[in-house]
């Protein structure tokens, strides 16, 4: 045996790694601290918050505030409880995302795989609608929805928004990266257009669908202006819009319901965050992987 006298190698401090982490930690704190303050306030009685402002200690009001936020209505009809608004938000977010994906996929399928006469022109027409976001066309859109009698309904909330240039564009690019031979093999295997779409294209696109779903769900969930215009019945309020309703109580002589409003804000943040956390692998794959 040779003698083992070698000293263990000294751990070198790699400053660049340290610096990277410092920047990341700072960034995370910067983003998280306001959320922690909001959370702290949801645990305190409202009177305490108005007297002392944000503090470092936690109170015991989380439970009662949660009850208020979820089950107490803030309007006149007593219909816009937190649970109802959460439900509305989910319907809007999911309907919005699914609608955009289905429509975008089918449009892209038509553009890529069928020899349409003006396919390129059609694509660019669709693409230019990116220049016309909802805010620009909100008055005519409102008028159309109103005339069709779709105010205060999920249909009115969702359908006018699901035409999507973004989704069409992404799916078009993705479909174009799928090898031609796959289409030909399927043709020889006797798969018609519908079968090819359902049996081959949809399963192949699942990472892309997941990525689109995340983006579109968050986008739909966060809609504020459109729901404010289309829904006036309190039982159609979404969370994002309902929080505003509660904070309106801040005006006047009432003690503002800080705890309840902040808790609803936290609840409104959660679903998009959870979806991103759970689907982030798919999300990255969908947007970066193209070798199929």
């Amino acid at each position: 045996m040779t003698d083992i006298t070698q000293a263990p190698p000294r751990r070198r401090i790699r400053w660049s790694v340290l610096l990277d982490h410092a920047i990341l930690i700072f960034g995370s704190l910067f983003m998280l601290l306001p959320l922690l303050v909001v959370f702290q306030m949801t645990t305190m009685p409202d009177v305490e918050v108005i007297k002392n402002g944000p503090q470092l200690k936690l109170g015991g009001e989380l439970g009662p505030n949660f009850d208020k936020a979820m089950y107490k209505a803030s309007g006149f009809s007593g219909l816009n409880t937190g649970t109802r608004m959460l439900y509305n938000s989910f319907v809007l977010g999911i309907g919005f995302a699914v609608g955009k994906i289905v429509l975008g996929m089918m449009a892209a399928y038509a553009l890529v795989y069928f020899r349409l006469r003006f396919a390129t022109l059609a694509f660019w027409l669709i693409f230019t609608t990116l220049l016309l976001p909802l805010e620009v066309r909100i008055l005519p859109s409102y008028e159309v929805v109103q005339k069709m009698g779709m105010l205060n309904s999920f249909n009115g909330l969702i359908i006018p928004l699901i035409a999507s240039a973004t989704a069409t564009f992404f799916f078009r690019q993705y479909f174009r990266s799928i090898p031609e031979e796959l289409v030909e093999a399927a043709r020889i295997d006797g798969a018609g257009p519908v079968k090819f779409f359902i049996d081959i294209l949809v399963p192949l696109s699942k990472t892309m669908i997941a990525a689109m779903f995340i983006i579109m769900f968050v986008f739909g969930w966060n809609q504020y202006l459109w729901p404010t215009m289309i829904t006036t019945d309190e039982d159609m309020y979404t969370l994002v819009r309902g929080i505003k309703q509660i904070t309106q109580d801040l005006e006047g002589t009432n003690i503002p319901e800080y705890g309840r409003a902040n808790l609803l804000a936290l609840i409104a943040i959660l679903p998009p965050v959870l979806i991103v956390i759970f689907f982030q692998n798919w999300f990255v794959k969908g947007l970066t992987e193209s070798d199929k």
């Binding site: 090898p179 031979e181 796959l182 030909e184 093999a185 399927a186 049996d199 081959i200 399963p203 192949l204 699942k206 199929k292």
Partner: peptide, 8 residues
């Protein structure tokens, strides 16, 4: 040439 198998 590239087999054209259905990857999924």
């Amino acid at each position: 040439q590239n087999y054209a198998l259905y990857p999924h």
